[in-house]
Design a binder for these strands. Structure first.
Lengths: 355, 355
DNA sequence: CGAGCTACTGACAACGTTGTCGACAACGTG
DNA sequence: CACGTTGTCGACAACGTTGTCAGTAGCTCG
């Protein structure tokens, strides 16, 4: 079918190379290369001839070939592995990282692991095969030791959102524990003692820290939580919906306030409260902001992570490590912020408390 | 495997090549290459030796070098240019495209143009310099003719969300006009005749189509809209907030329902209605879904784009064009869907209509 | 005038891979 | 046995670029 004689294919569809440019400008290929890389010792007249030739054939450097040949093999790209790019946290993070990388003329490759360890490895493998200069990873699963091999071969790694397991490396994390602790104390300050917590799988580092924050606050308040007030292992909104429904249907023992461990859980919980007609009765603080949080009634009180800072710090960390590899590994903590909007300031019902 | 923390610098941080693998396996480099590419005519015994050698040095193919040498220069990557990756529409689209690309073992590079034509060109240039096999572009500005050059050199282009200007090419777009027309008719069916419209810049193709849908519906309803009922050129939520505030403060001439041309405008409008205490009085239909739309009260009625379909169709379109370049350019229309949730079903106030 | 510099230029090797081709062995066929 | 065929393998060239180095011209300096 390719041998169709009728096919009009005058253009060989081949991209021009420095050879073409050199021929057209009547110079050697090295001179073209020099102009391309802004190297010194090129007569301005020559430079102009080359630039003109480049423009006339619409030359585009082949950066593949370039980085194969380069001494340092640098590709001016970094890889970012997130859980799910469709999640606002991930996409905003990606955007921030891209902007910071772009400032140094770096490109960012992104992949979604869906929280599956094997996918994470595949994506990392793919990135390394493209010889990214560094990796930013939101780690999943129980073992990131495989990254040590990549690091030894010259690809530094910075973990984001939670530290990698079975490996020491740079990490940029939010102050999860402090955030949830503050949220719980915030509810307590508004009169609550019966405070519940809904969280993700304890195997996820952030979830574990957040629950710890809740526990710390409760202990400090001398309010030993009822076992029915804490539910974990909630992996999505519908699981949270069911858990919240169960929690608030306990007639006598239901909490009067609840902290939600992440935004999916917040959404599920709000739906549950809506269905039970308790939206204006039960106080809610969510972890992670939501787009329309301030349009809800009552508007949603949240603990927000500083995504801007997380992205910036992790990109910076990676670039400094690229520049000087020998340094000690650092763990960077990024503060979180409580944003009161209404739902977290609902007082407990006036009638006497049980327990 | 190697748990020796004392062994430092045995490896000079150089990634192993097929040469290393070949030496270790005691075979020629070509045989390694054959194993790598699953080419036939390799004795199973040889294959095993090579695979073992690869594993023992943790070999990772250098796909840069590979695509430089390959006959077709294919890099197994495509470039996607969106307006802003932090926007849910863009990030969901990216996710869908990535999933579809991954199925064919393609990687997706993403860039945010911020709607700036020059940024778009820069990103496209960067992608082409990395020799992506194809481009998916949400076009900005008034001229995409520069892409013709890339196409002639073998990089096909598919436009998403709106067609490129000053160039004919494949495009995958939503049925914007029909969507807004249906939204307007939906409001009319619920008794409204005084229906307003808030839209983005008319220079944006989708915004232009959407306003056309509104106009078509209004004409069909014999309801010539008051000039105060249509505001365009709203570029962000705060502009929409001001426009909506102005629109609904016209005591006598205010509309009883409004269609919002995109999700930023919807957010601004909802804030304005909230501030004016009209949330439960004025009917609202938004274009594009919002994360918490169903948690609002009244829940938000929207026209949603089928992002899944858009991503899938555009990826498919690009891949078919990669496989057989000669085809006619196609414009694919993806249907939109009206999701009634409450805010679009609010009836007009009972007292007599003006006009 | 020659020696020694500096600025400039291009021929050529090299990067890690894939494409081409020829060598060689094992096989079936006549 | 001669012969072609098939399967297997590696030496080498080539991709588009950058690194090395030698060469040339023009200059200064003694």
């Amino acid at each position: 079918m390719v041998n169709d004689p009728g096919a009009v294919d005058a253009t060989p569809a081949r991209a021009p190379t420095i050879k073409d440019v050199a021929a057209r400008a009547g110079v050697g290929i090295k001179t073209v290369s020099r102009v391309l890389n802004d190297e010194p010792n090129v007569r301005p007249e020559m430079r102009d001839r080359v630039l003109e030739a480049m423009a006339s054939v619409e030359y585009r450097r082949n950066s593949m070939a370039s980085s194969v040949r380069r001494r340092d093999q640098r590709t001016a790209s970094i890889g970012l592995v997130v859980e799910d790019l469709a999640n606002p946290f991930a996409s905003q993070l990606t955007r921030v990282v891209q902007d910071h990388a772009l400032r140094r003329r770096y490109l960012v490759l992104v992949g979604s692991s869906d929280g599956v360890a094997e996918r994470e490895r595949e994506i990392v493998g793919e990135f390394c095969s493209r010889r990214v200069d560094g990796l930013l990873v939101v780690p999943s699963g129980t073992d990131q030791s495989y990254l040590a091999a990549e690091r030894e071969r010259g690809t530094p790694v910075v973990f984001i959102d939670r530290p990698g397991k079975k490996i020491t490396a740079d990490a940029v994390v939010s102050e999860n524990e402090i955030g949830v602790q503050q949220a719980t104390e915030h509810l307590a300050r508004h009169g609550h003692t019966r405070i519940g917590y809904l969280g993700d799988r304890q195997s996820v580092h952030t979830a574990e820290r957040r629950l710890a924050g809740y526990r710390a606050a409760m202990t400090e308040l001398d309010a030993e939580p009822d076992t029915g007030w804490v539910r974990t292992e909630l992996t999505d909104a519908s699981a949270a919906y069911r858990a919240a429904t169960g929690m608030f249907q306990q007639d006598d023992a239901a909490p009067t306030a609840v902290v939600c461990g992440n935004n999916l859980i917040t959404v599920g919980t709000l739906h549950a409260l809506q269905a039970l007609g308790l939206r204006e009765t039960v106080a809610v603080v969510g972890f992670d902001d939501l787009d329309l949080a301030d349009l809800l009634r009552p508007a949603l009180t949240v603990i927000t992570q500083d995504i801007e800072a997380i992205g910036e710090r992790s990109a910076d960390q990676l670039f400094t490590r690229l520049d000087n590899p020998g340094e000690e590994y650092a763990r960077v903590s990024v503060p979180v912020r409580l944003v009161p909007r209404g739902s977290g300031e609902i007082p407990p019902p006036p009638h006497g408390e049980g327990e």
